[in-house]
Design a protein around this nucleic acid. Structure first.
Length: 393
DNA sequence: AAGGAGGACAACCGCTATTGT
DNA sequence: TACAATAGCGGTTGTCCTCCT
């Protein structure tokens, strides 16, 4: 479009923000809301471009940002979501309340990526680097499932974003700038958040939740058994085998049981409001001509059907239909992780939270290796311990 | 104690998507 | 419909800090 960069103006400051600048920005937004970011700097008395102000606000100054060390749960969530979604930091951030995409991205690049790399796991594919023999066995199917589920999640996020835009249009009235502003929720969460967020952006990754059957303790998603169901319309053939027939409708229902006690653990602490609005919700994907045409969200607040666009353009989705995993998803994902770890470093992967048994891997015997092993065992153990008795399959 | 290396994180850049006119 | 303005996103860079030699 040939638009000139917003910071071209001479005299605009770059670089680290000073406390004074922070104060000005904060004070202005608290009083007036951000309004137009481009116009904001002048009004707030800042020698910055609007974009810089926006980033400073979304990544640092917003009052709902949690800073500091990432917890084990958060690390685990990031790793799993990255396996699903790749470098879609904003989407990942959607599922990590109070964390910004920038922060997650940095943390991935500086910590998690390196750690995976060290262990011989490709941080991009989440598979062992020397894994050349897995092309035709169950592992590749797992990978395919992950990929397809990523598409599901992608579509859902797309739809959520669209939903909030519509909501924004509807409720254009400005109340409290800190609450009503979509920007306020922009980066850390998908636009769906706060009061305009039926599905609740801070809830667990629906797919994981659905496949896990609810209690995802280790994922920072301590749902207390939201009953997730997967169903197909009667006339539709099973998606995973024959593809989706014309005009057939496949339903993926995520039905929360609205248990009041679901507000537990991390989510209660960090995203309580969002949870509450997600008690009874149903997300529905509708297929036409073999692709998903719409996503419906049903909650106590909204019942909206939205078109699904780009996220469903995947060839694999059209041609192969949706591969719904035939087993507990998280378990299988865990298996994948275990096997990847084992592929290169011969981890036992047998759920050994008790891994610190002093018998290190033969040969190396390095403390670093032991640390890694213990670390991953603890992560995997968390997942394993939370995914039994899935009602899904 | 000084300086270099590397890590961590904030901020910027450039591109794309969306929205408004 | 076309175009411009704006926001969002992901990759990259810059800067500060800590650790090691």
């Amino acid at each position: 479009m040939g638009r000139s960069p917003c910071c071209d103006k001479v005299g605009l400051k770059k670089g680290p923000w000073t406390p004074e600048e922070d104060q000005k920005l904060l004070a202005y937004i608290e009083e007036h809301g951000h309004g137009s970011w481009r116009a904001l700097p002048a009004k707030a008395g800042l020698q910055r471009c609007g974009k810089s102000c926006r980033l400073r606000w979304t990544n640092y100054l917003r009052p709902d940002i949690k800073r500091g060390k990432f917890s084990l749960q958060e690390e685990q969530t990031i790793i799993q979501l990255h396996a699903l979604l790749g470098n879609r930091w904003s989407a990942i951030a959607t599922h990590l309340p109070k964390r910004t995409d920038n922060e997650i991205k940095n943390y991935w690049n500086t910590h998690l990526k390196k750690r995976l790399d060290k262990m011989g796991i490709d941080p991009v594919t989440h598979k062992p680097k020397n894994d050349a023999l897995k092309s035709s066995d169950g592992q590749s199917k797992n990978a395919a499932n992950l990929s397809h589920m990523a598409q599901w999640e992608s579509a859902r996020l797309e739809a959520e974003a669209r939903l909030v835009r519509q909501s924004k249009l509807r409720s254009n009235s400005f109340t409290n700038p800190l609450n009503s502003s979509s920007e306020f929720t922009s980066t850390t969460s998908s636009p769906l958040n706060k009061s305009v967020t039926p599905p609740g952006s801070t809830r667990c990754l629906d797919i994981l939740k659905a496949w896990n059957g609810g209690a995802m303790v280790g994922l920072g998603c301590e749902l207390e058994s939201p009953t997730s169901t997967l169903s197909y319309s009667e006339n539709a053939p099973p998606m995973s085998t024959t593809g989706i027939g014309e005009n057939s409708t496949a339903f993926v229902d995520f039905v929360g049981n609205s248990s009041g006690s679901s507000e537990a653990g991390i989510m209660k602490q960090e995203g309580e409001e969002d949870w509450k609005s997600f008690g009874n919700s149903t997300n529905l994907l509708e297929y036409r001509d073999g692709i998903a045409n719409s996503v419906s969200f049903t909650s106590g607040i909204h019942d909206i059907s939205l078109p699904v666009e780009n996220a469903w353009e995947s060839e694999s989705l059209r041609e192969n239909s949706v591969h719904v995993p035939s087993g507990n998803f998280v378990e299988r994902f865990t298996d994948l992780l275990l096997s990847t770890a084992g592929g290169d470093r011969s981890f036992s992967g047998d759920g050994g939270g008790d891994s610190d048994n002093g018998s290190g891997p033969s040969g190396s015997g390095s403390d670093q290796y032991e640390d890694d092993k213990n670390y991953w065992n603890s992560i995997l153990n968390l997942v394993n311990s939370s995914n039994s008795d899935s009602p899904m399959f």
